[in-house]
Design a protein around this nucleic acid. Structure first.
Lengths: 211, 211
DNA sequence: CCTACCGATCGGTAGG
DNA sequence: CCTACCGATCGGTAGG
């Protein structure tokens, strides 16, 4: 098993060209899938976006579905990494701060430059056919478990369902993809405000119940 | 072997057969668009769902886009009617009760039997091409204005953005289409819990600030 | 509404 | 990766 790969540093432009082409395809597909949907994007659009002929895509990916799967996996990994990095530096005993940091990283991924993240959202998955659909959901579950833990760590007043709080908060955040416009509030600001909407009032309630 | 029978029902169903067929088309299209998306649904699927040949759809609608437009308009009207009826009976001075009733009606429409409502959500509109997209958004704005008014009527503590509260709440509600499963909590229960998540804590904050 | 049909486009493939 | 294709399906139409 000789799996060490060679970067080929000799010519910057044409170096590891095969890898570059594959990544270019992933990037183009992510962007097109995100804006026009899976069904609304043709193999021809993706290939021409990277200056390739339609049939050549199948040198890199066995099918359009596999291309989506690869895009989605990269999306999940990238958001997962961003959130884990954001909460990694925070102390474990401040559950609200960790949740807020996670939400900021989440929304920055979702609304930022990264085309891959848009594909990770369940609203994208909804209209897909069944074998493909389940694969994406399985990938995404890896990510959502993170938020289950973060919300579980909160200290909440009685009568507040943690599950509904999590779903409600994620809904608030994810829904912003439908109304967000660049140039106004930054994704980080929006995320913080939305967490505040739950946090301060709930904190007050908790403190009152304690006293 | 059955006796050959006429494709059209007898005089039991009265003469406005054209209207029936048109409505059947709208119903089938609403259901298919909702589950498989606009691009993912073919004219042939819609027509065969109502026992019609593909070309015959164009006797009722000039194009697939117009069919979607008609479905969407009916969806907006139906949700609008449901919400207006729900808040109509409530006194104007209880702004939270009115908002809650609106959210219940909203979610019951969205998650209920009515196939048309699913098409009203912005997440459906996102991937559509531009001329069509704007038409749908314009239709939907008629509906969203209602929630602007309902949230504006709330008495909130300082520092809480009404716009973000509205967007956050609607996000929580609309996002439930991605995780809702029949048989567990009813749409009404979910809506109430989500409004509670904002309401009681915020009420407490407001009362505290007042005293 | 059906019959009969269209050009365009789709995802995908064989062979180099 | 390109060349050169394929069958299937798409939205839509003319004419009755």
């Amino acid at each position: 098993m000789t799996t060490s790969r060679k970067p080929r540093p000799d010519k910057a432009r044409t170096g590891n060209r095969g890898e570059n082409r594959r990544e270019a395809l992933l990037e183009a597909a992510a962007s097109l899938f995100g804006t026009k949907g899976y069904d609304g994007t043709s193999i021809r659009e993706i290939s021409s976006a990277v200056g390739m002929l339609p049939g050549s895509i199948y040198y890199h990916f066995p099918s359009k579905e596999d291309l989506l799967l690869a895009v989605h996996e990269q999306g999940v990994n990238s958001v997962l990494r961003a959130v884990q990095e954001a909460i990694g530096k925070l102390p474990e005993d401040d559950a609200w701060a960790r949740l807020e940091a996670a939400c900021v990283a989440h929304l920055e991924s979702l609304l930022g430059e990264n085309s891959f993240s848009q594909v990770v959202t369940p609203q994208f998955t909804r209209s897909l056919e069944e074998p493909l659909r389940s694969s994406l959901i399985a990938q995404r579950d890896r990510y959502e478990k993170l938020f289950v833990e973060l919300v579980d760590a909160l200290d909440l007043p009685d009568g507040i369902s943690k599950r509904h709080l999590r779903l409600s908060l994620l809904g608030s955040l994810n829904w912003s993809t439908t109304w967000y416009r660049k140039g106004r509030n930054t994704p980080a600001t929006i995320a913080k405000r939305m967490v505040e909407l739950y946090r301060y009032p709930l904190d007050i309630s908790t403190a009152r119940a304690r006293s």
